[in-house]
Protein backbone atom coordinates (compact mmCIF):
# COMPACT_ATOMS: atom_id res chain seq x y z
CA UNK A 1 0.00 0.00 0.00
CA UNK A 2 1.30 3.42 -0.88
CA UNK A 3 -1.29 5.35 1.08
CA UNK A 4 -1.76 5.64 4.83
CA UNK A 5 -4.92 6.93 6.52
CA UNK A 6 -5.24 6.75 10.29
CA UNK A 7 -7.30 8.18 13.15
CA UNK A 8 -5.84 7.78 16.62
CA UNK A 9 -5.22 9.55 19.93
CA UNK A 10 -1.84 10.96 19.00
CA UNK A 11 -0.04 11.51 15.68
CA UNK A 12 3.42 12.71 14.69
CA UNK A 13 4.78 14.49 11.65
CA UNK A 14 7.64 12.02 11.52
CA UNK A 15 5.48 8.94 11.03
CA UNK A 16 3.75 10.58 8.06
CA UNK A 17 7.05 11.66 6.50
CA UNK A 18 8.65 8.27 7.13
CA UNK A 19 5.73 6.60 5.35
CA UNK A 20 5.83 8.72 2.20
CA UNK A 21 9.59 9.06 1.67
CA UNK A 22 10.81 7.09 -1.30
CA UNK A 23 13.90 7.13 -3.52
CA UNK A 24 11.73 7.92 -6.56
CA UNK A 25 10.23 11.04 -4.96
CA UNK A 26 12.29 14.21 -4.96
CA UNK A 27 9.71 16.28 -3.14
CA UNK A 28 7.78 15.77 0.08
CA UNK A 29 5.25 18.42 1.15
CA UNK A 30 3.74 18.35 4.62
CA UNK A 31 0.73 20.14 6.09
CA UNK A 32 0.49 20.23 9.88
CA UNK A 33 -2.69 21.38 11.60
CA UNK A 34 -2.41 22.33 15.26
CA UNK A 35 -4.77 23.64 17.94
CA UNK A 36 -4.96 27.45 17.80
CA UNK A 37 -5.10 29.18 21.18
CA UNK A 38 -7.89 31.61 20.26
CA UNK A 39 -11.01 31.90 18.12
CA UNK A 40 -12.45 35.33 17.29
CA UNK A 41 -10.56 36.85 20.19
CA UNK A 42 -11.65 34.26 22.75
CA UNK A 43 -9.06 32.09 24.45
CA UNK A 44 -9.41 28.39 23.60
CA UNK A 45 -8.74 26.04 26.51
CA UNK A 46 -8.88 22.78 24.55
CA UNK A 47 -10.52 21.04 21.60
CA UNK A 48 -12.39 17.77 21.51
CA UNK A 49 -12.53 15.77 18.25
CA UNK A 50 -15.31 13.27 17.73
CA UNK A 51 -15.04 10.91 14.75
CA UNK A 52 -17.37 8.58 12.92
CA UNK A 53 -14.24 6.55 12.49
CA UNK A 54 -15.13 3.91 9.88
CA UNK A 55 -16.73 6.46 7.55
CA UNK A 56 -14.03 9.06 8.24
CA UNK A 57 -11.33 6.56 7.26
CA UNK A 58 -13.28 5.70 4.12
CA UNK A 59 -13.56 9.40 3.15
CA UNK A 60 -9.87 9.97 3.92
CA UNK A 61 -9.01 7.02 1.69
CA UNK A 62 -11.12 8.51 -1.13
CA UNK A 63 -9.11 11.73 -0.86
CA UNK A 64 -5.83 9.82 -0.85
CA UNK A 65 -6.79 7.70 -3.87
CA UNK A 66 -7.96 10.75 -5.82
CA UNK A 67 -4.63 12.41 -5.11
CA UNK A 68 -2.72 9.37 -6.32
CA UNK A 69 -4.81 8.80 -9.42
CA UNK A 70 -5.30 12.40 -10.56
CA UNK A 71 -2.54 14.54 -9.05
CA UNK A 72 0.74 12.77 -9.73
CA UNK A 73 1.41 11.73 -6.16
CA UNK A 74 3.08 8.40 -5.49
CA UNK A 75 2.79 8.16 -1.71
CA UNK A 76 0.42 9.96 0.65
CA UNK A 77 -0.31 9.88 4.39
CA UNK A 78 -3.33 11.50 6.04
CA UNK A 79 -3.42 11.28 9.84
CA UNK A 80 -6.03 12.79 12.16
CA UNK A 81 -6.50 12.70 15.92
CA UNK A 82 -9.53 11.90 18.01
CA UNK A 83 -10.23 12.98 21.58
CA UNK A 84 -9.02 15.98 23.56
CA UNK A 85 -6.21 18.23 22.37
CA UNK A 86 -4.57 21.28 23.93
CA UNK A 87 -3.38 24.45 22.16
CA UNK A 88 -0.22 23.74 20.19
CA UNK A 89 -0.87 20.04 19.84
CA UNK A 90 -0.94 18.45 16.39
CA UNK A 91 -4.38 17.38 15.16
CA UNK A 92 -3.85 16.62 11.48
CA UNK A 93 -0.83 15.75 9.37
CA UNK A 94 -0.80 15.33 5.61
CA UNK A 95 2.35 14.28 3.78
CA UNK A 96 2.57 13.87 0.02
CA UNK A 97 5.55 12.65 -1.96
CA UNK A 98 6.03 13.20 -5.66
CA UNK A 99 8.86 13.13 -8.17
CA UNK A 100 8.61 16.95 -8.31
CA UNK A 101 7.54 19.52 -5.72
CA UNK A 102 4.59 21.19 -7.45
CA UNK A 103 2.33 18.17 -7.28
CA UNK A 104 3.18 17.64 -3.61
CA UNK A 105 2.20 21.20 -2.64
CA UNK A 106 -1.03 21.01 -4.63
CA UNK A 107 -1.92 17.65 -3.13
CA UNK A 108 -1.52 18.86 0.46
CA UNK A 109 -3.79 21.84 -0.20
CA UNK A 110 -6.41 19.66 -1.88
CA UNK A 111 -6.26 17.08 0.92
CA UNK A 112 -6.78 19.49 3.82
CA UNK A 113 -9.45 21.52 2.00
CA UNK A 114 -11.40 18.37 1.08
CA UNK A 115 -10.95 16.79 4.50
CA UNK A 116 -12.54 19.84 6.09
CA UNK A 117 -15.54 19.54 3.76
CA UNK A 118 -16.22 15.81 3.61
CA UNK A 119 -14.64 13.80 6.42
CA UNK A 120 -17.06 13.12 9.30
CA UNK A 121 -15.03 14.52 12.16
CA UNK A 122 -16.39 17.15 14.55
CA UNK A 123 -14.51 19.68 16.66
CA UNK A 124 -15.79 21.16 19.89
CA UNK A 125 -14.07 24.27 21.21
CA UNK A 126 -13.87 24.81 24.97
CA UNK A 127 -13.68 28.39 26.23
CA UNK A 128 -13.52 29.72 29.80
CA UNK A 129 -17.25 30.42 29.67
CA UNK A 130 -18.61 27.56 27.60
CA UNK A 131 -18.20 25.23 24.67
CA UNK A 132 -19.38 25.09 21.07
CA UNK A 133 -19.42 22.62 18.17
CA UNK A 134 -17.48 24.45 15.45
CA UNK A 135 -19.40 25.65 12.37
CA UNK A 136 -22.58 23.79 13.30
CA UNK A 137 -24.86 26.79 12.80
CA UNK A 138 -25.08 29.28 9.92
Amino acid sequence: MDLLVQIKDSITVQEAVDFVQSPSCGGVAVFIGTVRNETRGKSVQKLYFECYTPMALSEMEKIARHIQQEMGIQRIAILHVSGEKLPGETVVVIAAAAPHRGAAFTACQYAIDTLKETVPIWKKEYFEDGEVWVAAHP
Binding site: F49, M55, H80, V92, L115, K116, W133, V134, A136
Partner: peptide, 10 residues
Protein backbone atom coordinates in the same frame (compact mmCIF):
# COMPACT_ATOMS: atom_id res chain seq x y z
CA UNK B 1 -27.60 4.91 9.12
CA UNK B 2 -25.95 8.01 10.57
CA UNK B 3 -26.83 11.69 10.99
CA UNK B 4 -23.91 13.86 9.86
CA UNK B 5 -24.12 17.47 11.09
CA UNK B 6 -21.68 20.04 9.60
CA UNK B 7 -18.21 18.53 9.77
CA UNK B 8 -15.31 20.47 11.27
CA UNK B 9 -12.22 18.28 11.25
CA UNK B 10 -8.68 19.46 10.61
Amino acid sequence: IAVIPPVSGG
